[in-house]
Design a binder for these strands. Structure first.
Lengths: 231, 231
DNA sequence: TGTACATCAGTGAACGCGCGTTCACTGATGTAC
DNA sequence: TGTACATCAGTGAACGCGCGTTCACTGATGTAC
């Protein structure tokens, strides 16, 4: 029992080390991750990896799942740390947490939000963790609605779009204002765009004050949504 | 003279064909473009490509430049086709043109706006063509300012950010309102985010009415900017 | 507690593959006199 | 107009490399009695 769990612990440690080394390789080689290179870095023969992962794609999938979860954890923790009623504070906290995580883990961010890896199809169990950040953002808006702190925007949607959004809302926050949901999704899109531009090196070459830029731009979206608070 | 230009024309035709075949390969293999595969598709031996491109990276660079230019052309043409004073119409035309081009050329879009290709450094002459779409968007706002059709937002920027933006404006549209420039960049970020999400298959799985969604979301940004017009 | 057996991690060789790039070559097409 | 030479496109073989994956193997570590 003790002996078996020791072996199991060693095994878990190896799996962790493989993933850690693989993450390091992501940083330099992007998503064309090489099993052989990982094995080399660990001082093993390449076939040894197969004791832990049945194929290269499985290793990739594990890394992708971990990345989604790490980002989701960071984002949810940031939200939870702010006073519930401070909608605008929560919004900024979530945006900043996502950006901070991405800047700290650029390769993993690229893995989950960059262009799709050719020939690799993400399995279905990545869908739920992938939605955690936008769900948190929209959750803030939902809280605002139910506590009356946030006034929903006028219904400004064409019918087909409203129906689509109603269906999305039904699976998430039933009864939510579709127009507000659309604005929340605009905020999420903006957040993703800001981080991607900064990380992939477009735009911000001539914008040294990146923190201020980021806060201002996410603040604009908070205004668009109608989040109460300073400025 | 005539003879020489014939050979030159044949040569130019070959270069075009290589690029066309290479573009086709981008669609399936992403940015790991294989010279040998391109040669194979053309019924040539792989070394023959070297008569036309000194290396694989040069071919990639050519494709990237062409992609930037094609998108830039599409966007500028869309803007030019709308009555100058119809700011909101121009805004929507530019957004739609960018999206349409991206949907029609997903691989080339991924090449220029996806995650950076590992080990490939884009040469400097990609910078100018890359900026054409955002320059057009901000140009619309600038036109609005100079014709008085657009009221600049109140100065809402922290000092360091205003200085950064003033420098950007100086090289582009001197004297432009920094706060308005920031909003224009927010619009550009949103546009990029919307297209990327749609193309890379996040978010829109449950949103069948994509055109309506796109128009609505870009319309929200037009509102944020303060573009006059319906809705 | 001690022994016989099963499980498991890691080895090393091999498979078949594709890649970018170089190089000496063959013909055909153009140029100069 | 006709010939001698230079230019150029494309060939085919070869270089050295890295890759994912399979497989029979050796020891060491754990398990059952």
């Amino acid at each position: 029992m003790v002996a078996h769990s020791l072996r199991a612990r060693v095994r878990a440690g190896m799996i962790d080390e493989i993933k850690t080394v693989a993450r390091r390789h992501l940083a330099t080689d992007g998503a064309n991750l090489s099993l052989r290179a990982v094995a080399r870095d660990m001082g093993m023969v390449s076939s040894a990896i197969y004791r832990y992962f049945p194929s290269r794609d499985d290793l990739l999938t594990a890394l992708i799942l971990e990345a989604y979860d790490a980002l989701g954890d960071a984002v949810e923790a940031a939200d939870a740390a702010v006073e519930r009623r401070d909608l605008r504070g929560r919004w900024h906290a979530v945006c900043r947490a996502a950006r901070a995580w991405a800047l700290a883990h650029p390769a993993e961010y690229a893995l989950i939000y960059g262009s799709p890896v050719p020939g690799y199809a993400a399995p279905d169990d990545t869908v739920a963790p992938a939605q955690r950040p936008p769900v948190v953002l929209v959750g803030i808006l939902h809280d605002g609605l139910t506590t009356g702190r946030l006034t929903p925007p006028p219904d400004e949607l064409p019918d087909p779009l409203r129906e689509d959004l109603a269906e999305v809302a039904a699976g998430l926050y039933p009864g939510m204002s579709e127009a507000l949901l659309a604005r929340g999704m605009a905020g999420w899109t903006q957040l993703f765009g800001l981080i991607s531009f900064e990380l992939f090196g477009r735009i911000t070459r001539t914008l040294p004050h990146r923190d201020e830029y980021f806060d201002h731009q996410t603040g604009l979206m908070a205004n668009l949504i109608g989040l109460p608070g300073p400025s």
